[in-house]
């Protein structure tokens, strides 16, 4: 039982895909202008990881070893297409805001990485837990970055004004601010790690 819990928990802090493994940075930086975009992207990616982990770990015995990567990609692309169509149907505004980064979940290294490193070797239930943990870790990282960027860049959080009379630091809404924030956050985390050990 403890083992299963660990599979779930490792994606959130110890092997956080964004801050520790440095995977899937492209969407992280591009959509984190506002918290709602970041949260939606995180949830969409979580759905894709869960789906692909479920399917891949259930059919792992019938996938020939030599063409496993193309097989994984087809499974992942199917789930990405599902989420893209759902988003287009129910929330066109969100789809426009996320733009090309929705189809680009296909090449998000986290998804393929989990398929290759975990789901293709483990049991179905473990893979689901692993996918859920990684997805939540990715979502939390996105929420953190987009929260900082939105509150500093526009003085709002989830569209609600939090700082009154605050002159927004526009640079944090720009691409340059995204790179700066993630650089400083990575530095901060490695500082904490250095202090602890």
């Amino acid at each position: 039982m403890k083992n299963l819990f660990n599979e779930f928990l490792k994606g959130i802090i110890k092997e956080n895909p964004t801050f520790v493994l440095l995977l899937g940075l492209c969407p992280t930086l591009a959509v984190s202008v506002s918290m709602i975009n970041g949260l939606s992207m995180g949830l969409a990616a979580t759905f894709v990881i869960l789906g692909s982990n479920l399917i891949i770990s259930s059919i792992k015995r019938s996938i020939p070893d030599k063409i496993r990567i193309p097989c994984f990609i087809v499974v992942i692309a199917t789930f990405v297409t599902i989420i893209e169509l759902v988003m287009k149907a129910y929330s066109p505004a969100l789809n426009r805001a996320l733009g090309i980064y929705v189809p680009l979940i296909v090449v998000n290294c986290i998804v393929l990485g989990r398929a290759e490193a975990f789901a293709s070797k483990q049991r179905v239930f473990n893979s689901l837990l692993d996918g859920l943990g990684m997805g939540i870790g990715f979502t939390l990282a996105l929420v953190l970055i987009s929260g900082i960027r939105e509150s500093l860049g526009s003085g709002r959080l989830l569209g609600i004004t939090i700082f009154k009379g605050f002159e927004p630091v526009l640079i944090f809404s720009m691409p340059s601010g995204a790179l700066l924030i993630i650089g400083l956050l990575l530095g901060f985390f490695s500082l904490i790690k250095g202090k602890r050990s």
Binding site: S176, L179, G183, L186
Partner: peptide
């Protein structure tokens, strides 16, 4: 470079400044 910024963090900060220039 300060120890905790070595490697990737400093690369991101440089990229940020470059991006600022490209703006």
């Amino acid at each position: 470079v300060p120890e905790s910024l070595r490697n990737f963090p400093i690369a991101f900060i440089i990229a940020s400044i470059m991006s600022l220039a490209f703006m």
